[in-house]
Amino acid sequence: MAPSHTPTPSDRSTATRNQATFRRKLFDRDGVVSIIGKVLDTNSYPPPPGMTYFEEGPLQGAHIIPFSSSSHPELRKALSIFAGQSVETLLTVNQINDPSNGLLLDPFTHSIFGRFRFGIECRDKIYRLRKLYPDIRLTSQLNRHNDEEVFLFGWKSHLVPCPSSLLCNIHLAIGYVLRESNVFPMISAILGDEEEFDSGNTGGDYWLVTGASYLERKLRGLAASNYSDTADSDEEERLVKDIML
């Protein structure tokens, strides 16, 4: 889920335009200083009077559930099963850029949010920071806040939807699962390899180092390690498929 969706040539201009609108709506909702990190957007200097911030930098519109899910119905279906209620209509191409699916973040904090190192819990319309890893593995911007600190979104405009409690809690729950299952280092390595390949920096046989095929081989290895040498091959195949699903 971490990589951002890369538009095809036919939908690139539309995706870019929607992303700009998405970011502008987040500014309208939360102002020009990020709620998380207290970074002033570079293009908004000087800041409005009374604004508190620690540094200047570019702010990005971060999707709580990644843009790529809008083009993957199976992923939306899986997220609905995981959530216990349908989220498919919230994540379509027309809805994925709704501000209820967005946060304003600096690039570094955006990156670790996509890697599920922290999340936002929303209960009774109260948003709390949940750090999923030690401070040393987080950004200095995020470490300006204490774990469980309460955030106030929508202070500038109540006309723009605040982050969806459902989507925030789904993102956080996925983060907990990845942390407790200890599989995220493997997934992170695979995603890093794919980014290298997309950038043209990976040589040799792509199948051997990246993508779903690499993940499948790793999962087969994990499955095999949990069985004796005489394990039924059909049962092993079923286990791998269950893990991948």
Rank of each mutant, 00 (worst) to 15 (best):
L142R: 01
P161G: 01
I187H: 05
L172G: 05
H171L: 05
I174K: 07
H171C: 07
E149P: 09
L166C: 11
V183S: 05
S157E: 00
G154W: 12
C168S: 08
I170H: 10
N169A: 06
Q141P: 01
L142F: 06
F153Y: 09
T139Q: 10
Y176T: 08
F151K: 00
S157A: 10
L167Q: 09
G154P: 05
V160D: 02
L152T: 15
N146G: 13
P163G: 12
S181Y: 00
N182A: 14
L152M: 09
H171R: 08
P161H: 02
F184C: 06
S188E: 14
V183T: 07
R144E: 01
A189R: 06
G154K: 12
G175D: 03
S188C: 03
L138W: 08
L166R: 13
L167W: 06
V177H: 08
Y176N: 06
F184V: 02
F153T: 07
N182K: 15
V160N: 01
S165N: 05
L166V: 07
R179D: 09
H158S: 15
N143D: 09
L159I: 04
E148M: 13
S165Q: 11
F184R: 07
I170F: 02
I187Y: 13
I170M: 11
L159T: 10
S157R: 12
A173I: 00
M186F: 11
P161F: 05
H145G: 11
L178T: 01
N182D: 13
L159W: 02
H171P: 15
S181R: 04
C162P: 00
S165M: 02
Q141T: 12
R144D: 04
I187P: 00
L178P: 01
L172I: 03
N143H: 03
H145K: 12
H171G: 13
V150E: 15
N146A: 14
H171M: 05
Q141Y: 07
G175F: 01
W155I: 06
S181C: 15
I174F: 03
R137A: 14
C168R: 04
P185A: 04
C162H: 03
C162F: 02
T139K: 05
H145F: 11
E149H: 02
Y176M: 01
N146H: 10
Y176I: 13
H145S: 11
L142N: 03
N182E: 11
S140V: 08
H171F: 07
L159K: 10
K156H: 07
N146Q: 15
N182S: 14
E149L: 08
V160S: 03
V177M: 12
V183H: 04
F184G: 00
V177E: 14
K156S: 07
L167D: 10
S165H: 14
P161I: 00
F153G: 07
P185Y: 12
S165D: 14
S165T: 12
S157L: 06
R179N: 13
D147H: 14
P161K: 02
M186P: 00
G154L: 12
V160W: 00
A189N: 01
A173Y: 00
C162Y: 01
Q141D: 10
I174V: 14
F151E: 04
H171D: 09
W155S: 08
G154E: 08
L138N: 15
R179S: 14
A189C: 04
S164D: 11
L152R: 14
E180L: 03
F151C: 08
F184T: 03
L138K: 03
